[in-house]
Design a protein around this nucleic acid. Structure first.
Lengths: 194, 194
DNA sequence: GTCTATAAGCAGATAGAC
DNA sequence: GTCTATCTGCTTATAGAC
């Protein structure tokens, strides 16, 4: 009974990398095997349902990173000023998306043929993110429906800036957006354009 | 010498539909053949380099629709007030993206393995769109660099709202964004959140 | 838990008749 | 300009040894 070559979290890290780089359909077993150092059959040992299982596990694994880097800072210090927590979220987002150089798995898995297959976990993750932002805004006295709208717009803006980064080759809009995000969420009308 | 079954623009319309629905990798020759009613060999008669050629032709064809629906209204009535032209653009965008139910080909072709292959035409199209918006803002006296920034943010917001529509199943953020787009572009600080 | 070998199917692409 | 038939390679997935 040989020991596992890599700890499971390390395997998942590498699988995440492949899905992020190549998308669902481009994440072939050959690439997943090469990235993890595991043979195809070993991958099927970990993930009996093959690629579908891997993509779901990747979604959960990346979700944990997202909770730690983005959502926890938003909630942990509930005693801290809301603006500080939003700044912490922006910092976490910069790290999670590697300053705009890495795409969002939710966007990748919601398009093309993979879309319908992963609609539920993707939709849930997005709703949770939006909900957490809205909670933070609501805590400052912003009305619930307005808080939700602003949160949706913020998440949409982030997704779009990530698209722009890949399509135009510049991460500047993404980094600029993160800079202004806390102010824009708290008080859009007085937000400065720098 | 049998006549062509479909006029070329009709063939292209259907190819656009397949690429938009399934993405680049999901746009298999079987689907492209079925959607156009042409056999594989006939597709290769029109597009000697196969899928790559088809995707490029689809990009050009959709680009013509985009010019007509979105960019022309922005430029044609140079005599009209800028705000009217931005409203016309928003109307054109609503039609081009079918009120948020249809994804953007630029986003689809910039991700995954297709990304590097189509980086140039995709980047050019995006730059043209951003430039046109910036021109319209500059005509109102907005400083050039600020106009470009606002245009980038607007295009990013649109892309993100389209992602959100597919990932969350709701086109509300997209339609809401189009509603407020002209005001936000012209004077973000006084823009009302409705 | 990992491997080699292999199955079965579909991908993109081509040849050549009509 | 369209077709049928075919080729090659890569895809996911499985069987069974160690």
């Amino acid at each position: 009974m040989p020991a596992a070559l890599l700890p499971k979290h390390e395997v998942l890290d590498r699988l995440v990398g492949v899905f992020r780089t190549h998308g669902y359909e481009g994440a072939t077993l050959a690439r997943l095997s090469k990235a993890t150092g595991l043979g195809r059959a070993s991958l099927y040992h970990y993930f009996p349902n093959g690629k579908d299982d891997m993509a779901r596990a990747v979604l959960v694994h990346a979700g944990h990173d997202f909770e730690r880097l983005v959502l926890a800072p938003l909630q942990d210090g509930a005693a801290q000023p809301s603006r500080d927590r939003l700044v912490a979220m922006a910092d976490g987002l910069a790290e999670f998306y590697a300053a705009g150089t890495q795409p969002c798995l939710l966007a990748l898995l919601s398009s093309g043929d993979a879309g319908p297959v992963f609609a539920e976990p993707v939709g849930d993750a997005l709703a949770r993110w939006i909900g957490c932002i809205a909670d933070t805004l609501a805590a400052t006295g912003v009305e619930r429906s307005l808080a939700l709208r602003r949160a949706e717009d913020a998440v949409g803006g982030i997704q779009g800036a990530l698209i722009l980064a890949r399509a135009s080759g510049s991460t500047a809009p993404f980094r600029r957006l993160l800079d202004g995000l806390p102010d824009r969420l708290l008080n859009p009308k007085h937000h400065s354009e720098g």
